[in-house]
Design a protein around this nucleic acid. Structure first.
Length: 274
DNA sequence: ATAGGCGCCTGCTGGC
DNA sequence: TGCCAGCAGGCGCCTA
């Protein structure tokens, strides 16, 4: 579910609700999460104060005192919210952190459990983790030279490149399709056949689409909610994603859906020529 | 290096 | 109404 705009919205809404507060108790469901989460982490978190809340790609970073870093990935259906402790616990809630003042709770809910939560003991461990996964730059930091280099260096298609977190961090299926539409580029176009003008258009389109989506607090199709529990609104702005057969906003022709890089891919065959 | 397939999970939808 | 296939904002592993 959540791509960069959704994760950014979660982070922005969690920040004022978490920073400066202390963790009073930790509860983990018996099912817990698919990867990561050790029984030792709960006790280690109790008494710690939240220093900062940040994001890297689709990863949420909660920095605590004593160098502790709680790193959360929302997978497909993850929700990370701060709610009053009295609010009924929704099904599939796997981690609950009680906060010291006011009785609020930070809750991690994840129906499909593709998400993860990991505790790192030092900033260096965190950096090592991202080094190992080879996480690429934030889209907003990608410059023309880097982008041209990455495009030229591969025989893969543009869609596959955009989805590769090592090339650029934070892009998923929705924003890959929406950016390619914005740039008028066919998703199956081989990256290395993309000239400088087209490459530049794609890079700028990606940034523009992501910024617009952040302004609308991300896209809620089914599960996604922000850190406050509110849904996003960018799903109403989709030009191609999830609209196969419907008219292209530009040319009125029908939007196509194909399978690419193992993912369902939406585009306008008229406006996005190979 | 890269494509394709599967597996991890649960829930919802559409067709019969 | 019931059943079953197919689908879903992700990602890591395996094989060819």
């Amino acid at each position: 579910m959540p791509e960069l705009p959704e994760v950014e919205t979660v982070v922005r809404e969690l920040r004022p609700r978490l920073v400066g507060r202390r963790i009073a108790a930790v509860t983990v469901s018996s099912l817990a999460l698919r990867r990561h989460w050790s029984d030792e982490w709960g006790p280690r978190l109790v008494g710690r104060r939240v220093r900062a809340v940040g994001r890297r790609g689709k990863w949420i970073l909660v920095a605590l005192d004593r160098q502790l870093h709680l790193v959360i990935h929302l997978g497909m259906t993850g929700q990370l919210t701060v709610v009053p402790g009295g609010q009924p616990l929704a099904g599939h809630t796997h981690v609950v952190l009680d906060l010291d003042r006011g009785g609020d709770q930070l809750r991690f809910r994840d129906v499909r459990r593709f998400g993860s939560a990991t505790l790192f003991e030092a900033r260096g461990q965190l950096e090592e983790f991202f080094r190992q996964t080879g996480l690429g730059p934030e889209p907003f930091d990608v410059d023309a030279g880097y982008w041209a280099g990455r495009l030229a260096a591969t025989s893969r298609c543009l869609k596959a490149l955009l989805l590769d977190q090592r090339v650029v961090a934070g892009v998923g299926n929705i924003y890959a399709d929406e950016s390619l539409y914005e740039a008028r580029l066919h998703p199956a176009r081989p990256a290395r056949n993309t000239g400088p003008a087209d490459a530049g258009r794609l890079r700028r389109a990606l940034v523009a689409v992501l910024r617009r989506a952040i302004a609308k607090r991300g896209s809620s199709i089914r599960d996604y909610v922000g850190g406050s529990g509110r849904r996003g609104a960018y799903q109403r702005e989709f030009r191609v994603y999830g609209r196969p057969g419907q008219p292209c906003p530009r040319c009125r022709g029908p939007i196509a859906r194909i399978r690419l890089a193992g993912r369902s891919t939406h585009f306008c065959p008229q406006c996005q020529r190979l």
